[in-house]
Amino acid sequence: MHYVESKSILSANNGMNLYRGCTHGCIYCDSRSKVYGMNHKFEDIEVKQNSLELLKKELIKRKPSMIGTGAMTDPYIPLEKHLQYVRNALKLIYKYGFGFTCITKSDLILRDLDLLKKINEKSKAVVQMTLTTADDDLCTILEPNVCKTSRRVEVLNELNDEGIPTVVWLCPILPYINDTQENITSIIDYCIDANVKGILCFEMGLTLREGNRQYFYSKLDESFPGLKDKYIEKFGNNYSIPSPNNHKLMDIFQKRTSGAGILNNADEIFEYLHDFPQKSYQSTLTFK
């Protein structure tokens, strides 16, 4: 871990990253790619020590809307348990009448359930949870340093019980590893039981580029001997790595989600995630 002073904290679209880097150890992580220009070891977490200061200034200036985090770094990495940057950011988001959404794989988010509920009552809070494999043993290989899928499903159910809407990221799906009908069907079953609002799935496969490709291949050598050679022969240096089972699995995905009334169109889901309740904005005018 190391601290830095940041010049900004919110993007033009209200995206926020309090940390940079991750220790979850997911073997497929795109954030390792060199294109992002990270100049430190991926596991050496960069902490933006002035981020809360910057966030407060931005929230005061901006029209209330949804604040999102987790696109590049899971906000609930183990360091957050002690540093509490996310928790303190949630307090500011609630105070100034904004909404909140995040992408995570961690059950640490339940620590902040009290604030999520307050935000959701005042405006809107949505939790996005990544599920890639229904098998816990396989999960510990693909995503070794974060809670297993079964625990994430418990989190989804608890959030549903508490009235917090959820969206699931069903990706990536790794060719010859978790691209099976049994896996996809099981994850969708979990989502139906947890009453998720939508499931994001950008076809069955993954993306690889310089940086994350090398790391991914090294992990294939450790846990799936011989599979790296199959990838190289089949996909070369392609960015897009589609599953040979893509069409069959996407057909299952579309039919099962549509039948269950779960949103499955990415544009519609992103529109839902970005939509800020207008009545919440009106209620903040007197507050400010």
Rank of each mutant, 00 (worst) to 15 (best):
S6A: 15
K7H: 03
I9A: 02
N17D: 11
T23M: 03
H24V: 04
H24A: 05
C26S: 07
C26N: 07
C26E: 04
C29Q: 01
S33I: 04
V35E: 13
G37Q: 11
M38K: 11
H40S: 14
H40T: 15
N50C: 10
E53P: 00
K56H: 09
L59N: 05
I60V: 15
K63M: 12
K63H: 12
P64F: 00
I67D: 01
G68A: 08
M72A: 15
M72N: 06
D74P: 01
K81V: 02
R87M: 02
N88W: 02
L90T: 01
T101G: 03
C102N: 13
T104C: 02
S106K: 03
I109V: 14
K117C: 12
V126C: 07
T132I: 10
L138N: 14
E143H: 08
P144R: 06
P144F: 07
N145M: 09
V146Q: 05
S150T: 10
V153R: 06
L156D: 08
N160K: 14
E162Y: 14
V168I: 10
P175F: 09
Y176N: 11
N178L: 07
N178S: 07
T180D: 05
I192E: 08
A194P: 03
I199D: 03
L200P: 01
C201L: 08
F202Q: 12
M204G: 00
G205C: 02
T207M: 10
G211Q: 12
R213Y: 04
K219W: 00
L220M: 10
S223V: 00
P225I: 05
G226Q: 09
F235S: 04
G236H: 13
P244W: 07
M250E: 09
A260S: 11
D267H: 11
F270D: 13
Y272E: 04
S283Y: 07
T284M: 15
T286I: 14
K288C: 04
